[in-house]
C-alpha cells in the first residue's frame, strides 16, 4: 500500500508537503527491506541541508542504511521518539515513524520527486 497523497524519492523516502514545510520518513518497502530497526541517528535541528545530503543513519539488526535529505532547506523538527523507540518506523513508517521536518527553500525541487504511481513502478523494477 503506497499512500497516494505522498511524494517519493529513489532512496525509498516519502515526503509530505504542506506549504513550505516538508515531513519525511522511509517507505513501507524500505522498512520491510531493513527489518527490525534498532537505532536511528537523527540530524540536528536547525541545520541547513541540501537535497541528497546524508542526514543520518538507520540501523537494523543486520544492516545499516543512510538517511538522505529529500529536499533542501533547514531542519525544523526531528522525531525524538525514534531515539528510544526506533522500531516505531517498522510499525508506522508513514505516521508515528516520521524522521524529520524540513523548512524548504527551493520549490522547484518538489518537481523532481516521484508521485505514488511512479514510485510503485520504481519499487517493482
Amino acid at each position: 500500500m503506497i499512500p497516494r497523497e505522498l511524494k517519493y524519492t529513489k532512496e525509498h523516502e516519502w515526503v509530505k508537503i504542506d506549504g513550505k514545510e516538508a515531513v519525511f520518513g522511509i517507505t513501507e518497502h524500505a522498512q520491510s527491506e531493513l527489518g527490525d530497526i534498532t537505532f536511528v541517528e537523527l540530524p540536528s535541528k536547525g541545520s541547513d541541508v541540501k537535497k541528497t545530503d546524508v542526514l543520518g543513519t538507520i540501523e537494523s539488526v543486520k544492516a545499516a542504511s543512510e538517511i538522505y535529505a529529500p529536499l533542501s532547506g533547514k531542519i525544523s523538527e526531528v522525531n525524538e521518539l525514534l531515539s528510544d523507540k526506533p522500531e516505531t518506523i517498522n510499525f508506522s513508517p508513514y505516521a508515528d515513524g516520521w524522521i524529520c521536518k524540513i523548512n524548504t527553500n527551493d520549490e522547484s525541487e518538489i518537481e523532481t520527486l516521484m508521485d505514488a504511481a511512479s514510485y510503485e513502478k520504481y519499487v517493482k523494477e
Binding site: G35, D36, T38, V61, K62, E87, N90
Partner: peptide
C-alpha cells in the same frame, strides 16, 4: 533469514 522478524 527471518520469518516474522529477527528480534521477535
Amino acid at each position: 533469514l527471518q520469518y516474522t522478524g529477527i528480534i521477535d
